[in-house]
Amino acid sequence: MTAEPGGETAGSEAAQALEEAADSPGLDFLARSGFAVLALLHILIGSIAASVAFGGYGQAETSGAIGPLARSEPFGPLLMWAGCIACASLALWQFAEATVRVRRRPTRERLAKGISSGSLVFIYGSVAATFAAFAGGTGRDSGDRTSDFSAAVVASPAGAPALGAVGALILGIGAYFVFKGSARRFRPELKYFEDTRRGHLLNALGVAGHIGKGVALFLVGLLFIAAAVNHQPEESTGLDGSLQALLDYPFGAPLILVIAAGLICYGIFALARARWGRM
C-alpha cells in the first residue's frame, strides 16, 4: 500500500509550518524566558538544599521553590502564570527540536534527539503544570505528588516493575547529565565559548552544573527503584526525600552541599543560556 502524494505533501507542509513557528522571534523570546525561569528555580532549590545540609528547614524541590513565590503579594498569581507560559513555551521549543528540526537528519540522530529533547518536553511541561497549579490555588507538595504517582504506578497492571523502569529512566537521564558535563557536550549550546574569561567561567559552570544536576537525578532514580523493590511507593518522594535520606549517613551533609553547589552552578549556566544560548 503506497502513501497518497497529497497526504505526504500536507504532512511536509505541516512540519514546515511548525518549524517556522518554532523559529519565530516570539517563541524564541518565550523559550529564553523559560531558561531564565529554570535558572531561578535551580538556584532556589540549590540554596534550600544547602540550608537542609546545615540543619535548616525547607523543601529542596520545585514546589518548595515555587510556593513562596506564589504566596508573595500582590504579584504571586502573575508570577505563576508568567512562569507557566515561559516553561510551556520552552517545552514547545524542545518538542520542535525532537521532531521537525531533525526530520531530515539520519535515523540515529533523529532517535537520539527524540530521546534527549523528548524527555525535556516532559520535564519542562511538568514544571509549567506546577506553575499553573499554584496559579490556580491547587499547588501541592512535589514530594506528595511524586508519592501519589508512584502509588498509582504500583497499583496499575504493570505494578512495581513499571515503577522500577521509571527509576531506571531517571537514572539514565542523570547519567546523561553527568556525561554531558564531564565531556563538555554543552558547549555548542552557547554562542560565547571563545578563549576568554567569560568562556572559561561558563565552561566551569557548565561542567559543575551538569554533573551536580546529574547526581541529583541519580539519587531520585535510586529512590524510585528502592520504592519498587520494597513495594513501598510512599518512599519515592523526589529530590527532597533523597536529600533527607542522605542526612542519615555520615557523608550525607557534605554530599548535599556538593549537590547544592552543582544545582546553583546549573542555574547560573541556564541563565547564561537564556542570554547567549543557540536557539
Rank of each mutant, 00 (worst) to 15 (best):
162 A>G: 06
194 E>M: 13
193 F>H: 12
165 A>V: 14
179 F>P: 08
188 P>N: 04
164 G>C: 08
193 F>V: 11
178 V>W: 12
197 R>I: 09
180 K>T: 07
201 L>K: 09
192 Y>T: 07
189 E>C: 04
199 G>Y: 09
189 E>S: 06
181 G>M: 10
187 R>E: 05
186 F>E: 05
204 A>H: 05
195 D>K: 12
192 Y>M: 03
192 Y>H: 08
168 A>Q: 02
198 R>S: 08
193 F>T: 03
193 F>Q: 02
169 L>P: 01
161 P>C: 05
181 G>Q: 11
179 F>W: 15
198 R>M: 09
167 G>F: 06
183 A>E: 05
199 G>R: 00
186 F>Y: 11
199 G>V: 03
197 R>N: 08
175 A>H: 12
188 P>Q: 06
176 Y>T: 04
161 P>Y: 02
193 F>Y: 12
178 V>L: 15
163 L>S: 12
206 G>Y: 00
180 K>F: 09
181 G>W: 10
205 L>S: 00
167 G>T: 07
189 E>L: 15
172 G>N: 11
161 P>N: 03
195 D>I: 03
201 L>G: 01
176 Y>D: 07
197 R>K: 09
184 R>W: 06
166 V>R: 10
195 D>M: 10
180 K>E: 01
200 H>A: 02
201 L>P: 00
168 A>D: 04
197 R>C: 02
163 L>G: 11
166 V>I: 15
192 Y>F: 00
182 S>N: 09
196 T>R: 15
179 F>G: 04
165 A>T: 04
187 R>T: 04
183 A>M: 14
163 L>V: 09
201 L>Q: 04
194 E>H: 13
194 E>F: 12
183 A>G: 02
166 V>T: 07
204 A>D: 09
189 E>P: 02
185 R>Q: 10
164 G>N: 00
202 L>H: 04
162 A>R: 01
161 P>E: 06
162 A>P: 00
170 I>N: 01
190 L>P: 01
194 E>G: 15
191 K>A: 14
198 R>I: 02
177 F>M: 13
172 G>W: 09
183 A>K: 14
195 D>W: 10
177 F>V: 07
205 L>P: 00
189 E>V: 11
183 A>I: 09
197 R>A: 08
206 G>Q: 07
201 L>Y: 00
192 Y>I: 14
171 L>M: 12
175 A>K: 15
172 G>E: 09
175 A>M: 13
204 A>E: 07
187 R>Q: 04
193 F>K: 07
162 A>L: 05
170 I>S: 07
192 Y>G: 07
200 H>F: 10
181 G>K: 05
174 G>E: 15
201 L>C: 03
167 G>K: 11
161 P>F: 05
204 A>V: 13
206 G>L: 05
205 L>K: 06
168 A>I: 13
188 P>G: 00
168 A>R: 08
203 N>C: 00
187 R>S: 02
185 R>S: 11
178 V>T: 14
162 A>W: 03
186 F>W: 11
203 N>W: 06
178 V>S: 12
187 R>W: 02
196 T>Q: 14
179 F>K: 13
200 H>K: 11
171 L>S: 01
184 R>N: 10
167 G>L: 06
169 L>E: 03
168 A>Y: 02
176 Y>W: 14
178 V>K: 13
173 I>H: 01
165 A>G: 10
189 E>T: 15
191 K>D: 11
162 A>T: 02
172 G>S: 09
190 L>Q: 03
186 F>A: 01
191 K>G: 14
166 V>M: 08
163 L>M: 13
191 K>R: 15
